[in-house]
Design a protein around this nucleic acid. Structure first.
Lengths: 179, 179
DNA sequence: TCCTACATGTAACGAGTTACATGATTTC
DNA sequence: GAAATCATGTAACTCGTTACATGTAGGA
């Protein structure tokens, strides 16, 4: 049994959630609409991982071309469900972050007050865009999606709102400082 | 001029903050006490990057052995300060996250209610540990460290508190659900 | 004496992004 | 007829961690 990356379990997770089989393309769409906010995955990971999963018998692919357009639809197998369950029960909760915006803010002592404030505004705007995307996801569901994902969505919404709030407070504080 | 990774600017940022020169070891300590919560760096990045910076003339190393123990202390040069300033003014605020805990929670539909709650508790405990570490950092400073870093610290504290809160709320909600 | 902290590095590996190549179908 | 979307994949590259190797100094 080869080693699977977390992306493999993202795939298994999405396949377990549904009865209709998904293509690599579909899976990428799903990731971009949901997990990407806390766990992204690119085609360069998804396609090779699907192949590995298929070789190991954890998913099963069926060719379903639409006219001349190739399409392979994958479903999870019994072994796949078992592997997913094992992975779900592992108690690893590692959180990695790389926050370039905050890194710049952290080292912005040597910038002028105006430049610092500008940095914070950029960061605020970018986070506001993410928040808007998340809110769009929130509207887009409301239906078919089960319980847990909506908890995760709430997590993301709250997190973004906190960050935006922090930016606003920090900007306000810096603006007051010279008075 | 070679391309420098973000880690290079972490190094320049720390060197610019102070008058006494730092060794690679010192820099790693600084990272582990502060930026690691939103931007980690390992020896495997720091030492090679110091060399590149030195070759490019952005830092200057002076050998200061303590007895038979080797030690090279680096200071930032004028060119280094300029390069740092240029980097600080770039408007990139990219935020990457990889949250394994939330990923498991997201896909935990197929677990029992008890198992899900257990997952959330693990996540809560791990985040509480991080929060405690951050609070230790908060106590450890209070002195020498300038303005902005303390804003960043507040950011981290707030973020962790939000996450822990979300875990508590979600656990409570799941516990209520069967009644 | 042994353990911890100081100190420097590198090699192998794994993870992840980006750019590219290719081509069909649908929609405007 | 052009543009967007569907669809699959790979190669090159960058990034980052981990494990290892090596040795000194100071304190219990």
């Amino acid at each position: 049994m080869p080693n699977f990356s977390n992306v493999a379990y993202v795939i298994l997770g999405f396949l377990e959630n549904t009865d209709d089989p998904k293509s690599g393309y579909d899976l990428k769409q799903l990731v971009d609409q949901s997990t990407r906010f806390f766990f992204a995955a690119s085609y360069g990971q998804i396609y090779p991982e699907l192949k590995k999963l298929s070789d190991a018998g954890l998913v099963e692919g069926v060719s379903q071309p639409t006219g001349g357009r190739a399409r392979v639809e994958y479903s999870i197998t019994g072994d796949g469900s078992d592997a997913l369950r094992v992975w779900l029960l592992e108690n690893k909760t590692r959180l990695e972050m790389r926050d370039e915006g905050l890194l710049r803010v952290f080292f912005s002592d040597h910038l002028s007050r105006e430049e610092r404030i500008a940095k914070l505004r950029e960061m605020r705007e970018d986070r506001a865009v993410s928040l808007a995307e998340l809110e769009a996801v929130e509207c887009a569901i409301g239906d078919s999606i089960p319980d847990m994902p909506s908890h995760a969505l709430e997590y993301g919404l709250g997190l973004h709102r906190y960050v935006i709030d922090w930016c606003d407070r920090t900007i306000a504080q810096l603006e007051k400082e010279t008075e």
